[in-house]
Design a protein around this nucleic acid. Structure first.
Lengths: 191, 191, 191, 191
DNA sequence: TATGAATGAGATTTCATTCAT
DNA sequence: AATGAATGAAATCTCATTCAT
């Protein structure tokens, strides 16, 4: 909005990739929404793929920060997992988080270049590690049943991914879906 | 394959939509793989969107049939849920099922026309109903803990969706992921 | 409508060429409206151009017949011209005459082949001759002012053509346009 | 012509729409004649329809200007009408006026969009108003017989339209047609 | 840094016509 | 005579990217 046109572009890109998906988002749309010349896009970001990556990483960085804040305040391993899940789901429906960029265009979707996928994957793996650590803590402190921590982290994140898609992409999601998801996780892992 | 060009088109389309996604799948690719003239596509299916819908519905119909066969043979509600989940996950990695069409192009993704989305959604809601019924049975026969059947069906299917995406779209899925998912579900619902 | 599919095709073609023009009228549209197989079109009429010509000539033949009937009953040259004009204009707004085929697709518009144009032109020249003869009669019987009969026939037919286009193609034609046209002709030629 | 590619496109478009009609004029033909890349057409004009509209309006604007200049110099109402007609007909056979765009593609022909038709119609109605005003003047100054001015304007313009089509679209027009048309008008309106 | 005109490859779609049945 | 599947050329339009200013 201010004079920083590079940021204005990123802002518009995050919105549009989330609203329209990768393919339907065009340079023209982005530059128009940002109120900026078309040519600045390649000037600042090189090409569409890189702009896309920048958009996704920006959202993902905010996401990771929120998750870490949440788990940092946990009173127990079990509590940490539940905080992690709640934070995940809250972030995914926060109007200002531009989460949809990740839903439509994450590692879970289209990503052309090998390098770009790798960067995204390594960011996502940090999300997994964060959850895995708190699960390990829960097993140690006796609040979580004895499971394989890495595998369970993947299962729980899979549930987050699926629940989120059901919520934001389908018309038939229960209003209480997220609450039910949390209860489901709780039953599955509590010691 | 030789005489029926209409079916050859559908066959090629299912493969390609799954491999490449909607946008990257072109008329040229489809007609070449089907060994058929370019114009036959619109002649038989009207346009790309309708062919896409036909592809998805075809896979979904096979899917539903498999799920119904599975739950029909259940010895209890709990057993039925586990059979449902196992069948879901097996189908999703069956080489011949063309499951990826749904992963990339289902209600969980892009669908341009309102009508097409509605048709897809109503097919998917049958999947939910199938699971819900077997959950109800499990609650009645005492093999499943007392939960809201509709919400729990959504949670479990969300987990299937997420686990499947993790398996087929990411490079970091544990080999044992599907087994861990089943164990997770079991812990969460067993009475 | 009966069993004669060749005629059904011509009937549908006349309607559609008039409604949609040459280019927008497709074989598919024609065969569907006629309730007849697509392949019959080329079977019976060779190609689109020839079918178009047949449609136009059919309307034109009916038109010429009406004009001849009208002038045949004239009590004087002047009366004949006025009858000619009235018949022209009436025919052009008769719902059943399929006149629009000629408006959109006559010598006054698109006609690809030299031969086809020539056939149409020769039919139209008969319309001119018909009017010219009655003008000659009017000059002889003293009911029409002394003018060049051939040129005046062209002028009057030009007025018919233009008035008709104004009536059927524009939104701003006066309701009384045709009456005013007749009065205008009357003033211009009456002895 | 060299530097301004947008104008070069419009110039080529006016020529080609006139020569070939709307449908037969292709993006390829236009861009080749203009010596410009294919994509520039949509870049500058949006789509074919809009370029077509721009072409027509450009010719029409020149046309209106010429008509106004002509009637402005009239010594009487009658003289004005005759000047109007002569200017109309002259413009229509001026090699440089690109008049054929209007013949083939004016309100008197195909125009897809409602909005585009409206714009064209409103331009054409200015032509009618111009003639109507000079007729009113003629009736007042006693040089034109007492007629309904609006209706008579429509009749005269109809005659211009038809005469012009006869001249430029048919092979059998008299060389003297335009002179005869002027004489015809004169007889019909002179007081 | 900033602009937007310019490019051209490529996608979807249309459709007259052919042809086997 | 009748059918409609099959063909492929051609049209319109999109859009990432380049580049002169």
């Amino acid at each position: 909005m201010n004079t920083n046109k590079k940021e204005a572009l990123l802002h518009a890109a995050k919105e549009l990739f989330g609203e329209c998906g990768y393919v339907e988002t065009t340079f023209k749309k982005i530059s128009e929404r940002a109120g900026v010349a078309l040519g600045l896009l390649t000037h600042h970001y090189g090409n569409k793929e890189k702009l896309f990556l920048a958009s996704g990483l920006d959202v993902l960085a905010n996401f990771l920060e929120k998750l870490r804040e949440a788990t940092a305040g946990a009173t127990s391993g079990f509590d940490g997992v539940m905080l992690f899940c709640r934070t995940y789901l809250d972030f995914s429906i926060d109007k200002d988080s531009n989460w949809l960029v990740l839903v439509r265009c994450s590692p879970y979707s289209d990503m052309k270049t090998k390098t770009d996928r790798d960067i995204m994957d390594s960011m996502f793996s940090q999300v997994h590690q964060e959850l895995e650590q708190i699960i390990v803590r829960g097993i140690k402190d006796g609040t979580i049943t004895n499971v394989d921590s890495k595998a369970t982290a993947q299962v729980i994140i899979s549930l987050m991914v699926g629940a989120n898609r059901t919520k934001v992409l389908t018309p038939y999601a229960c209003p209480s879906l997220y609450e039910d998801v949390l209860a489901f996780v709780s039953r599955a892992i509590r010691a």
